[in-house]
Amino acid sequence: MRHSSAGLNVVSLLAMLFLYGPIFVLVLYSFNAAHLSMAWRGATLKWYAALMHDEALLAATANSLLIAVVSTIGATCLGGLIALGMDRLPGRRQLLIEGTLVLPLVIPEVMMGVALMLFFVMLNMPLGLTTVILGHIVFNIPLVTIMLRTRLRKLDPALGEAAADLGASSWQVFRYVTLPLLRPALWGAILVAFTVSLDDFLVTFFTAGPGATTLPLKVYSMIKSGVTPEINALSALLLVLSMSCVGLALHLQRREV
């Protein structure tokens, strides 16, 4: 027993190293004083300082945040309405909708990006921030809906009936019972949607026009002219932001009553 668990530990350690080693190296080298070589020349924060003065980079950051915030709000509202509305449908139709919702999650993202681009072009919509936001809402709706459905399914349907029986109108049932019970899942969904939007490359790549460059697109274009420690620094910052969002989301979900 002890022997096999030691073996398991070694394998787990190797797997972790394989997964997180490159990320660790990336973060480490964002503090490297050397400009172009991989040799370690002492620690510095100058690449982080340089990021703060890069106008183009700051503009991309602003775009990314704007897109993430607006698309998260849009996806949460629409996804939330779908999740709540599904409860009132007969079981068979719920399954149908659930199946349709999962589809965007399994369609290759490249196809989704191309399809969205063609769709916008067909509508004669100029590619820009609006199209990117719409694209992000599209892939975030299923995420939000599925996360909220998981929570709603666990709630006793008698709770809503009990509230109505005690004199609550349907709005009051939502306001005082459903919403508070849904809150942890709702925050979780918001944070996940925000992170996914912030990190997205493919859909953004196909639906962004001039002036709608986001951070991932910016990193991609910077890499064409060589990997600089500045990119390492930028990636490290993005990593920290994404991981804190996901960590917070998991923490909130665990506190569900």
Binding site: A158, E161, A162, A164, D165
Partner: peptide, 16 residues
């Protein structure tokens, strides 16, 4: 239900 002058004690209690 919210306008009826009676209250139900649920089998599952349905406490909030």
């Amino acid at each position: 239900p919210n306008r009826r002058p009676l209250n139900l004690v649920f089998q599952s209690y349905a406490l909030f």
